[in-house]
Each structure stands twice: as C-alpha cells, then as structure tokens.
Simulated assay, not measured.
Amino acid sequence: MALRLLILFIALPIIELFLLIKIGGVIGFLPTIALVILTAVIGSQLVRRQGLTVLSRIRESQARGEMPALPMLDGAALLLAGFMLLTPGFLSDALGFVLLVPGLRQKIARRLLSRVVIIQPAGGVNERYAGRGQHSRPDPNAVIEGDYERRDQGTDKRGPASPKADDTSERSGRDDGV
C-alpha cells in the first residue's frame, strides 16, 4: 500500500506537468494558465453549492436520529474534489469534476460503506439498527438489574470515618494534632 502511494505521489505530478506542457504547446501559455484558473473558480463554486446541500442532508439525518454515514462520505468526496480542482493540472481537474457528479459520488460512497465493518457495543444492540450502518439505540423498555448500597457521608461499613479519611485538614494546611 505504501509503495502504491509513493508511486502515485511521484507519477501524478509528472503526468500533470506533461499534460500542462503539451496543452500549453497546443493552445499557448496564457490560455493554458487561464484555463487552469477558470477550472479552479468554476469547481470551487460547484463544490460550495453541493457542499451546502450535503450539509443540509447531514443535519436532516441527525435530526431523525440516524448516523449520517453516507452524507458524511459524500462531504468527504466533495472535499477531495475541491482539493483536486484547486490543484493546478488537467488530470486532477478531470478527477475533481468526476467527483462532482452526485450520482457517481454517492455510488462510490455506498461502495466504500459496504466495505466498512461496523462494530456494535457489547449488549444493547437494537436489531432494528444493527447491520445498517446506524448507531444502535438503547431500548427504552429495557430493564437493568443490579444491587446498590447507600453510604452516608460520615460512615461506611467499617464504622465512623477516621480523621485520615477527612482530607479537609490536609487541603487547608491545618494540623489539629489528631
């Protein structure tokens, strides 16, 4: 995996430079720079608009008490798209614009979610939400059994509190000689 990332970080800038030089040779230097800036401006506006839509979907999911996994991945894909569109180069712009297609972006997010293993907390798993990528909700009718014991402030099972158990003299710096 690390080797693939290393190759990606080396190969991608080389491909970007190659494309910039080739396109610059065909259409000229200034039009190439203008095209790179134009794709960044258009892409940032599209990411902003779609990002606001995704943010409202996240809020709606949370209001319904659901885990907004799909909208969160959608937002992460938009963040990646914005990064790619602001990076100078035509290959990164093409990948960024591909990520701006909502249907394709959501399909990629669903595929990623299908590969994620969801670990439920021990006990209290509500079958209604299990396996659907949602947080499990505690059953409001569940009975929790247990024992309790009340301990008054000055006494416990061993008898009255000893002076060493009272730490007020230690905090105030007093020594009552006890």
Rank of each mutant, 00 (worst) to 15 (best):
A2F: 15
A2T: 14
L3G: 06
L6D: 13
I7T: 14
L8G: 11
L8Q: 13
F9I: 13
F9R: 15
A11C: 09
L12C: 04
L12N: 03
I21Q: 02
K22D: 11
I23D: 07
V26S: 13
I27E: 03
I27W: 04
G28I: 01
F29Q: 00
I33A: 05
I33Q: 02
L35V: 09
I37T: 04
I42Q: 00
I42E: 00
S44P: 03
R48V: 06
R48Y: 12
L52F: 14
L55N: 14
L55I: 12
S56Q: 15
Q62C: 05
A63Q: 10
G65W: 00
P71L: 06
L73Q: 02
D74H: 04
A76T: 06
A77L: 12
L78I: 06
L79A: 09
L80I: 10
L80D: 01
A81Y: 01
A81M: 00
M84N: 08
G89R: 00
S92G: 00
D93Q: 08
L95Y: 02
L100W: 07
V101A: 14
G103W: 06
L104I: 15
R105P: 06
Q106A: 09
L112W: 10
L113G: 02
V117D: 10
I119A: 10
I119D: 08
G123A: 10
G123E: 09
V125Y: 06
N126V: 09
Y129D: 08
A130L: 11
G131C: 09
R132F: 13
Q134D: 11
R137G: 07
P138C: 07
P140R: 10
P140Y: 03
I144G: 00
D147R: 12
Q153A: 10
T155A: 14
K157L: 05
K157I: 07
G159E: 09
P160E: 11
S162I: 02
P163L: 09
K164W: 13
K164M: 11
A165Q: 14
D166T: 00
S169G: 15
R171G: 02
G173F: 11
V178D: 10
V178T: 10
